[in-house]
């Protein structure tokens, strides 16, 4: 239980450290509003063109989906690895089936060409 308090306390300490430092920097640094051009996004010297939050590659989305599937798997595998000494053969076979199903999914994605970056 005290470990939970440690984590919460570290969260609080870390966040307040960063906020205090940024606040101190905000107080001691000089500020100059400048003209319109100062606030423009830096895009290598020319004014920004088109919608910034517009369209971007679909590949990012597919990798995120693959990640979700495999990251849930990792959570199960971690717990399985801790108790593996008590399971031995039965644990090995069940995990082989579990990972096999996921690998089938990966093989399907591979075959479909999803893993090629475009």
């Amino acid at each position: 239980m005290s470990n939970l308090w440690y984590i919460a306390g570290f969260l609080f300490a870390g966040v307040s450290f960063v906020f205090l430092t940024i606040g101190a920097a905000w107080l001691i640094s000089h500020r100059n509003p400048g003209d319109v051009h100062k606030g423009l996004p830096y895009e290598s010297g020319i004014d920004t063109y088109g919608d910034t939050h517009g369209r971007f590659g679909l590949s990012f989305y597919i990798y995120a989906l693959l990640f979700v599937a495999f990251d849930i798997e990792v959570v199960f595998i971690f717990l399985w690895a801790i108790v593996f000494r008590d399971l031995l053969i039965s644990g090995f076979i069940s995990m082989l089936i579990f990972v096999g199903i996921l690998l089938l999914g990966l093989a399907y994605a591979w075959r479909k060409g999803v893993l090629e970056w475009r």
């Binding site: 430092t21 940024i22 101190a24 920097a25 905000w26 001691i28 640094s29 000089h30 500020r31 100059n32 100062k38 606030g39 423009l40 996004p41 910034t52």
Partner: peptide, 12 residues
């Protein structure tokens, strides 16, 4: 130096 620099948020 980073601590004393202007902390600027761009428009938008």
């Amino acid at each position: 130096k980073v601590l004393m620099k202007e902390d600027f948020s761009p428009t938008g």
